[in-house]
């Protein structure tokens, strides 16, 4: 092999190495740039629906069957709230609109969770 061939082989190898070492970071960065925000709806620990925010419709109501009964989740622009819930204390309805990544509405008796997720969440968790 010629000197130039060796050069080519080594450069390819080096490039591959660098890419392998950094690809995780590269992909993560790429994910951050799009910053897609979505509302994730879970019933009894199972994810049942994901909605990208803002929705195409300006206003949208979604009926979800929970443990105790049917809950109505309302979407408006970038915001989500529990519009109606069959539970006794109505804590989830009082929680009102949520829109920032990491925020959530939790209805304990009806076992429904609505969470705002985004690739870029600055904290591992929030204490409240």
């Amino acid at each position: 092999m010629k000197k130039a061939d060796w050069f080519l082989v080594i450069s390819i190898a080096l490039l591959a190495l660098i890419f392998t070492a950094f690809n995780k970071h590269v992909f993560f960065r790429a994910g951050d740039v799009t910053q897609e925000t979505k509302a994730v709806i879970k019933v009894q620990g199972e994810k049942i629906k994901e909605m990208s925010l803002p929705l195409k419709e300006k206003h949208y109501k979604l009926e979800v069957q929970g443990k105790e009964g049917i809950a109505v989740i309302e979407f408006q622009d970038k915001q989500v709230r529990m519009y109606e819930s069959p539970c006794a204390e109505q804590i989830c309805v009082q929680r009102s609109w949520i829109s920032s990544p990491g925020e959530s509405i939790i209805c304990v008796p009806n076992e429904i969770v609505v969470e705002i997720e985004s690739a870029k969440q600055p904290y591992d968790a929030v204490t409240y």
């Binding site: 929680r95 925020e103 600055p122 904290y123 591992d124 929030v126 204490t127 409240y128």
Partner: peptide
Amino acid sequence: KADKKPWMIGIQDPRDPGEVIGA
């Protein structure tokens, strides 16, 4: 954590649930 960074825990703003007062 897998990324070896320290755990960052936000503290919710008591009057604005979408915000944190600090971490």
